[in-house]
Design a protein around this nucleic acid. Sequence first.
DNA 1: CGAAACGTTGAATGGTTTCAACAAGAGTGG
DNA 2: CCACTCTTGTTGAAACCATTCAACGTTTCG
Lengths: 244, 244
Amino acid sequence: MMTIEASPLTRKLSAFVALSETELAVLERLHQRRKSFCAGRDLVHQGQSEQAAYILAEGWVVSYKIQPDGSRQIVDFQIPGDFLGLRSVLLHTSDHGIEPIVDIKAVEVLVSDLLQAFEETPRLATAILWAVSRDEAMVVEHLVGLGRRDADARMAHFLLELGVRLSLVGMGSRQGYACPLTQYHLADALGLSAIHVNRVLRRLREAGFVTFRSGQVTFDDYEGLVALAHFDPAYLDQTRPLLP
Amino acid sequence: MMTIEASPLTRKLSAFVALSETELAVLERLHQRRKSFCAGRDLVHQGQSEQAAYILAEGWVVSYKIQPDGSRQIVDFQIPGDFLGLRSVLLHTSDHGIEPIVDIKAVEVLVSDLLQAFEETPRLATAILWAVSRDEAMVVEHLVGLGRRDADARMAHFLLELGVRLSLVGMGSRQGYACPLTQYHLADALGLSAIHVNRVLRRLREAGFVTFRSGQVTFDDYEGLVALAHFDPAYLDQTRPLLP
DNA sequence: CGAAACGTTGAATGGTTTCAACAAGAGTGG
DNA sequence: CCACTCTTGTTGAAACCATTCAACGTTTCG
């Protein structure tokens, strides 16, 4: 039972909870306020407090924190179907900034609407809770990478994870994917200097694992890269719905 | 309107959502199956899939991931009032291990009971969603530390965050707190070698900032430490309830 | 007492950063 | 059209932070 065109979020949540028609309708009702944003202009500034979150419909977004010394740590990238700023809304302080990498389209969701939706269909709350937990699992994996993987494995793991995530929304495959990120993005995400990112990418390319060039990631040796990164996509993949 | 003795979780959630008596009752009903666990014996093994989560009532717990090369990355420490293994249950795969650091007491919560509770009182779902988001905020801060702070600031930030968290449940103050962690725990949490942790602690002690010795953390210069770590507790502190 | 866990210190090694330059492409205004 | 700037990518050499290896001290506990 699908609507003509399921939104990316609906598709994602349906993998976890078999949503009834009523619940789908409630979810669809949240997708009213469509908006567009330009690349580079912050959606949410670090420090301000917001009362609206967004669901990304199209484009790439980066969540980051600026340190007092000016350096930047990228927490995560969002792709279509992901929430933007939900944590800021719930915690009532935006501890991080959110910036579109390219021009994007997103749906504005007021907290009040979301909470109202929970009242109507508690199963939706469970589904959202699942989505938030999945996001946390990705952050945790990212954390492990920063703490205990060397630069090469970190890069390999990152490119693979992004590949799986994109594949789940039809934007990538085992061959590779289009990727608008710069080496500076990679550096700030992986806790490296841009210079070293360049060296790492060269090493991986010359070793025949993966090529990152002009907005395109190409997996030259997928299995080899998986082995190098010790990549296990279990935390990303939902094989079957948890709730009937 | 309080029960005789509010559980740590109830206290934490009440800071976010003003829970009605009905909701408090539902929450209390979750606190049935009390259990004890010994220090050092895993509650949840990495890889197995569980159907029960826990709410920590007493003691310290560590969540970690073991890397294929045998090294360990600690994701977070849990103190009373925190959830244990909720993410494992929701994602249906335990991507991490959970180990009591000391003997602990915890309450077992079946997913089914939790979801049932959501059906009865959707506001409780919102409160739990807040708690999960707060956990995620801590993981994010941890991630930033690993990516963009040097060893000294990382250590300082970690000790301060733990202090604030413990203060919120009455187990610490600006003077310091009792801390059962070893230097090995710190090393695995901060992505350092145990040897280097030792050096960092010595430096911080000799510089008059903080003393970590024999199970006791003592802040010798709280303000100085805050400055060194660029510590901002905004993400931990809930000044006022978000929901009436 | 002996063993095990935890803490402490020095010296050598190495991964990563910083500093300094240079190259290539895109967009802009003259 | 060209010069100009800005962004992104690339490379080398020196400096540094943190790790590894190795050893020893300390405390706890059966």
